[in-house]
């Protein structure tokens, strides 16, 4: 009898072998190193008086800080809406059959992606120096640029128009991800180009468009801090006003940072579920929610199965 056959027999006879889990010493070492570094960091954060945690506690729910958060959120929402709407238009222009339309879209994207957004913000803020009155080329229209371009409108224009350039690339990638056969099938049915885009292509492109748009929204929330340079009283500028008065610079920057983390975390959760929603029909099984992951962890690591006992 061969050795192999002998082994199969033994295995068949002893069906209730207990399983000894593989050991991973490397994992324990790396975990220990990381925990040690983490503790060092924590100690310095707690023990360093310059963090001024008492001051942080005092200002974390200050009226002007909360008002700043409201403006930050408002600015994020408005600029993202402008960015998405204009981005779709630019993306469709970019794949147009008309070379002039295509080039115009390309020029817009090159300009807004090629210049720093901070420069754009300063530019819009100082628009009155370039065009003191805005006539739009229409007789009878003569608007005072200084009155229209408030810090807030400059911020909305700067961030929104810049965002449109980035969104258009995301939307374009989404449109290109839809199989060519789809527009052919629609064309063969006599559905015109605009209807094909609206009813067939864009709904399918959403799966590709949504995840990076979530990232862009979170990015936008943080980018709004830039408009503090044109004195829009958003979260960072509100904090700056306070520390300009009381010189508690670090604690107020901590206040702002804590709020940025809180809001981006909430947006991150929203993004997870939005992505999960649009993954339907694209994947067989949806990615597990954190709650499902936790349940699975508990199930897999339950004490009985760890010892290899049978259930």
């Amino acid at each position: 009898m061969s050795i192999a056959t002998e082994r199969y027999k033994t295995a068949a006879a002893a069906d209730d072998f207990s399983i000894v889990k593989a050991r991973h010493p490397g994992r324990w070492i790396s975990a220990a190193v990381i925990v040690f570094i983490g503790l060092l960091l924590l100690r310095s954060v707690v023990s360093n008086p310059n963090f001024g945690w008492a001051t942080v506690g005092m200002y974390i729910r200050d009226v002007s800080i909360v008002r700043g958060i409201a403006i930050t959120l408002e600015l994020t929402a408005i600029c993202m809406v402008i960015g998405i709407v204009l981005g779709v238009v630019l993306a469709v222009m970019r794949i147009s059959a008309n070379p002039v339309v295509r080039t115009a879209s390309f020029a817009y994207i090159s300009f807004f992606r090629g210049t720093p957004v901070l420069v754009q913000l300063l530019f819009w803020y100082n628009l009155a120096a370039l065009y003191p009155s805005i006539t739009l080329g229409i007789p009878g229209v003569d608007l005072d640029a200084n009155a229209i371009i408030t810090p807030l409108t400059a911020a909305i224009l700067g961030l929104g128009l810049n965002q449109a350039a980035y969104m258009s690339e995301i939307v374009r990638a989404g449109i290109l991800s839809v199989e060519h056969g789809q527009s052919e099938a629609a064309g063969a049915l006599g559905i015109n180009r605009l209807q094909t885009m609206r009813r067939v292509i864009l709904p399918q492109a959403m799966r590709v468009i949504i995840p990076p748009t979530g990232n862009e929204t979170i990015g936008m929330l943080k980018t709004t801090a830039l408009v503090s340079v044109i004195s829009v009283p958003e979260l960072l500028y509100s904090a700056q006003i306070i520390y300009a008065r009381n010189f508690e610079t670090i604690p107020l920057l901590m206040v702002a940072s804590i709020w940025y983390i809180v809001v981006t975390s909430i947006l991150g959760v929203g993004q997870f579920y939005l992505e999960r929603h649009y993954a339907k029909g694209g994947q067989r099984s949806l990615p597990p929610t954190p709650w499902q992951q936790l349940k699975r962890f508990v199930r897999v690591h339950d004490p009985l199965s760890a010892k290899g006992a049978k259930k």
């Binding site: 056969g181 789809q182 099938a185 064309g187 063969a188 006599g190 399918q204 029909g281």
Partner: peptide, 20 residues
């Protein structure tokens, strides 16, 4: 052209149904 295509049905190798 779209209007003329109404008269002509077409069936593709890869079906090209609208998956959504």
């Amino acid at each position: 052209i779209c209007r003329s295509r109404v008269e002509i049905g077409m069936v593709f190798q890869h079906f090209n149904l609208f998956p959504h």
